[in-house]
């Protein structure tokens, strides 16, 4: 689904990422750990193609196409969706309109129903993101992603700012987008296409969204790959530096 080869990313003149290699296969959900400022959001932004993030080396492939220089909208139409942390307010453009934009004329998308599912039906006719709380922003982004129905979903800290009451709701919506639900048999799991890349600090989202592979972004590059739950345990017990050491010394599950 997504392949990054030796990718380096600058913000302005500052090198933020270097030699990033990542391969996410259809049906896989990957988790990205890393300390504040390690470049996790930059990585997601670079995959989406946001202008701020300049790819200075390497290639990004999506569904077999080289998307390294592709505009954001073309990537979106190709099936990449993103939940960003601090989306801008688009004054006068309602959440309903935005969800309809995401649905791209697909009449099977029932915006009312999706909005109810994330408890955002009361917000549909408000300007997108205007005065939304942290949790409302997450649920608004999830609503848009549900309407968009992308094959590859990037979630930037979906649980941050969400109160305990709503975290299950966020988890369920993420599962729905990733089609992680109602796939009990091995065969169905094998046939699963939807893939994802999730940034998490706390790991709370992993209680709801089963992830397949974890990575730690440290020192501007992906420093280890492994079992997400084990990595999370290691990070929370010993910190990032120790975790990288343990995995680079052969600690991870892969």
């Amino acid at each position: 689904m997504l392949k990054m080869e030796h990718v380096a990313v600058n913000i302005g003149d500052r090198i933020v990422l270097r030699d990033v290699n990542l391969h996410i296969k259809p049906g896989e959900v990957h988790v990205l750990f890393g300390p504040n400022g390690s470049g996790k959001s930059t990585l997601l932004g670079a995959i989406m193609g946001f202008n701020r993030y300049k790819i200075t080396a390497g290639k990004i492939w999506f569904k077999g196409q080289d998307i390294t220089d592709m505009p954001v909208d073309a990537r979106s139409r190709l099936g990449i969706g993103i939940m960003i942390q601090r989306p801008p307010t688009v004054r006068g453009v309602s959440l309903r309109q935005l969800a309809a934009i995401c649905a791209r004329g697909d009449i099977s998308v029932n915006i009312e129903e999706l909005a109810k599912a994330v408890n955002m039906d009361a917000f549909l006719d408000r300007s997108a993101n205007e005065g939304f709380s942290g949790g409302e922003i997450k649920r608004s982004e999830l609503l848009q992603l549900m309407a968009q129905n992308p094959d590859f979903v990037m979630l930037d800290e979906p649980e941050s700012g969400v109160d305990l009451e709503n975290i299950a709701l966020v988890g369920e919506a993420a599962n729905r987008i990733l089609e992680r639900k109602n796939l009990s048999t091995a065969q169905q799991r094998r046939e699963r296409i939807k893939a994802g890349l999730i940034i998490t600090h706390t790991g709370h989202i992993l209680d709801y969204v089963p992830a397949d592979i974890g990575h730690v972004l440290y020192g501007g590059t992906i420093s280890c790959n492994g079992n997400p739950q084990e990595m999370l345990d290691c990070i929370s017990k010993y910190g990032y530096q120790h975790c990288i050491r343990c995995s680079t010394e052969g600690g991870g599950s892969q």
Partner: peptide
């Protein structure tokens, strides 16, 4: 808005109308 699939022109027009 481009991340939601609109072209640059469509995005600008949507923002202006909003």
């Amino acid at each position: 808005l481009m991340g939601r699939g609109l072209t640059e022109e469509e995005a600008a027009a949507t923002i202006v109308r909003g």
